[in-house]
Nucleic acid binder design. Structure first.
Lengths: 153, 153
DNA sequence: ATTATTGCAAAACGTTTGCAGGTTC
DNA sequence: GAACCTGCAAACGTTTTGCAATAAT
């Protein structure tokens, strides 16, 4: 399955001759441990608990760096864009809970037939795709059902 | 195929008892005629040629309105978010040229099997999905090939 | 010692809001 | 004439930049 992300990120930094600093460690820890997608502001707030001096600017710069190195992925939403999650290696997409925000990656998107079909029909040469699914995670789904039941009484 | 979008938008405004004003007409014309996805700023710039007094604020408000009524759709990107295109009725996704920005809609995304599969595996109750494909449109593809040929000489 | 990285303050964006005046129905 | 819409200016939140001080290699 997924490789331990935080180690991957740390090694990646070294390989790319970028320095592993205390602020970056704090940020890495937060992202690697997050069960959520997080906005830069959220990351900043959380990482400050471990490293109170941390500036928001550094969060932005670190996110850019990690995205570039492929250890973090940007997630888009219909309203406020731009949250980040630790990325599994290789091609992947996200499944996000619209209620609690929990995010989960999946890899086999199986869009090849659709893409092949569209390439034939439109003449486009398709090489990037963005797919995000949203809905209720098991926990929130249960809660919703329970509340519905309650309301029905 | 697609209904004539501009008429649809105009009628829609009337149906919803919203007024059809000159600024809105200018904006509608631009969006309906665009072969591109356009940012609010782009729309503003273009629509000003027809209606020089137009304020950017009005563009934002009109876009919100049209999105709400379903005549316009927001498109997301990896870098700068938030462009808009005229929307065909019903469920649809976009195919965007990464070179010139030309956008095209398609409807049959055929994600049902994937979604069913993921629901079974993860327990999520999936009800929204966002799919965007990017690549070179036929024109840009040709240009790229021609340039490559040239370079090889 | 060298070079990258940080944090601050301030600028630059994109977007939203309050409000007086103007337009459409 | 009532309700809606517009534009301005100004507020707002997010992201970026210049720069001197600091920390990692």
């Amino acid at each position: 399955m997924a490789t331990p992300v935080s180690f991957g990120m740390r090694d990646g930094l070294r390989e790319h001759r970028r320095k592993l600093t205390r602020p970056r460690q704090a940020i890495l820890d937060i992202i690697a441990a997050a069960e959520h997608h997080l906005t830069p502001a959220e990351i900043h707030k959380r990482a400050r608990k471990k490293y109170p001096h941390l500036g928001l600017v550094t969060v932005y710069r670190t996110l850019d760096l990690l995205t570039e190195l492929g250890y973090v992925r940007r997630v888009h939403f219909n309203d406020g864009c731009h949250s980040y999650v630790a990325a599994a290696q290789g091609h992947a997409h996200h499944l996000v809970c619209s209620n609690c925000g929990k995010a989960q990656e999946f890899e086999n998107c199986d869009l090849e037939p659709l893409i092949a079909n569209l390439q034939r029909k439109t003449g486009f040469e398709i090489n990037v795709h963005m797919l995000e699914l949203m809905g209720r995670c098991p926990d929130c789904s249960v809660t919703a059902n329970a509340m519905a039941k309650k309301a029905r009484r």
